[in-house]
Simulated assay, not measured.
Amino acid sequence: MNPLLLRTALITGAVIGLLNIVFAALDYGLENLPLWFYAAQLLLLPAMILPMRYFPQASATRDFLGRAGLFALGWAVPFAIYKFAHDVLSPVFDPVASLISYAVTVLLFSLIFAAIRRPRAG
């Protein structure tokens, strides 16, 4: 992996983890966040590094559904960690609703990214 892509993956994973901690602290209070929640945020670093190769491939893929699929693969694991770690904190956690929300969000974002990040003509 080239150094720029690696640095981008690490910075993105760290920012997403910090944002998740901030949002969870706003919802539940920083003192109420369990230790496993912080540890789960560390999983975002390898979760961003491993699928990072999908993003340049997606940006170069001409087929819309193929491009959307690559974006979905790239965001699937990091977003799962982000979403489920936060959702599980809720006292009224519903695994089915959380999974449906996760799937719909990944689908929508992959379609939006595929529409925005299409390869240049020529």
Score class of each variant (00 low, 15 high):
P3R: 14
P3H: 14
L4E: 14
L5E: 04
L5V: 04
L6C: 02
A9R: 00
A9Q: 00
L10I: 13
I11H: 11
T12L: 11
G13W: 02
G13K: 00
G17L: 00
N20S: 13
I21F: 15
F23V: 07
F23K: 01
A25E: 05
L26P: 01
L33V: 02
P34L: 07
W36P: 03
Y38M: 10
Y38N: 12
A39W: 08
Q41H: 06
Q41M: 14
L43T: 13
L44V: 04
L45Y: 01
L45T: 01
P46W: 00
L50R: 04
L50C: 07
P51D: 05
Y54K: 05
P56Y: 06
T61G: 08
R62F: 12
R62M: 12
D63S: 15
F64M: 14
F64Y: 15
G66W: 07
G66C: 09
G66T: 09
R67L: 09
A68L: 09
L70E: 12
L70I: 08
A72L: 07
L73Y: 09
W75K: 08
F79I: 11
A80K: 04
Y82M: 09
F84R: 01
V88M: 15
S90D: 15
P91W: 06
V92W: 13
V92F: 14
D94C: 01
V96C: 00
S98M: 01
S98K: 00
L99Y: 01
I100N: 03
V104N: 05
L108A: 06
F113V: 00
F113H: 02
A114D: 05
R120L: 15
G122Q: 08
